[in-house]
Nucleic acid binder design. Structure first.
Lengths: 143, 143
DNA sequence: TTAGAATGTTAGCTTTGGCTAACATGTTTT
DNA sequence: AAAACATGTTAGCCAAAGCTAACATTCTAA
């Protein structure tokens, strides 16, 4: 199985990825906000993600069409079962990358780096990073 | 300095990043191809990156406008000083991520994962990963 | 209860980076 | 040198994901 180069967009198309990075960002954030309060609204999400409300409305419609959330105009945003499943995985992925970076000693822009890297890794790499972090944590922390 | 969430696109805008992922992919590949032969043409680049020639033409024009390459219609593509600088850094970044993944034991889609992750990391994280890989390599390789 | 403020939606614009179809240029072969 | 082929460019389309401006709805408080 030859491996070939593609552009980022090329990989997305080639692999028929179902969730774009943005969709992941929104679902992840809805999940996070849902844990604090079960009234998640367009304004909360916009604020949390630093986007304007119309962008949120547009994305929510898309997520609703693809059954990640239930939403009706002017209402509040609820994750579906499917959305919750995805959301919890995304949050776990975030946690794993964040802890790895912490463990590496990253101090500046750690959130930004987490957010960027999390969209890049597949399950295999994620698991391996997770294992590595565990090892680093209790074997060579003074590194 | 509070850290806030953004979408991927949001980070790009906020940081006024000068090179998009695609631009990086093209420059990196031109650099790679230039090492094999100094006649890099639109068709070579298209083939290498799995994009259609019109996409390459368009991007080359952009890279030329921003002084990463010198190009004239139907001619061949040459990196400028600036382009070579960037290119060699991109290749080095690629190498560091690739070796890290190898070291993690990644076998499947290692090139794809490298290509995705390399666009995500900043210099700080890159250096830290580089250090870590060195340590892993000669201290705990049987891991 | 109605006016004003706050929140949400719509319409329509922008950029990026793909694509195809059609055309232009260059190269090779007869 | 002309025909045929290979390569490159142009024009114009598309989707994603942002944005602003204008409008609609809902909430709050006088």
């Amino acid at each position: 199985m030859k491996e070939e180069f593609y552009t980022l967009k090329g990989y997305r198309i080639k692999n028929e990825e179902i969730l774009s990075s943005s969709m992941e960002d929104y679902i992840e954030m809805i999940y996070r906000l849902s844990q604090k309060s079960d009234e998640v609204r367009v304004s909360d999400l916009s604020l949390a993600l630093n986007v304007r409300p119309p962008s949120t409305t547009k994305m929510i419609k898309r997520l609703a069409k693809e059954n990640y959330v239930v939403y009706e105009r002017y209402g509040c945003i609820k994750l579906t079962e499917k959305g919750r499943d995805v959301g919890s995985k995304l949050l776990e992925r975030h946690r794993i990358i964040f802890e790895f970076l912490e463990c590496l000693g990253v101090k500046e822009n750690i959130l930004e780096q987490t957010e960027k890297i999390e969209h890049a890794v597949n399950n295999d790499v994620l698991e391996k990073i997770n294992e590595l972090t565990k090892v680093l944590k209790d074997e060579i922390l003074p590194f």
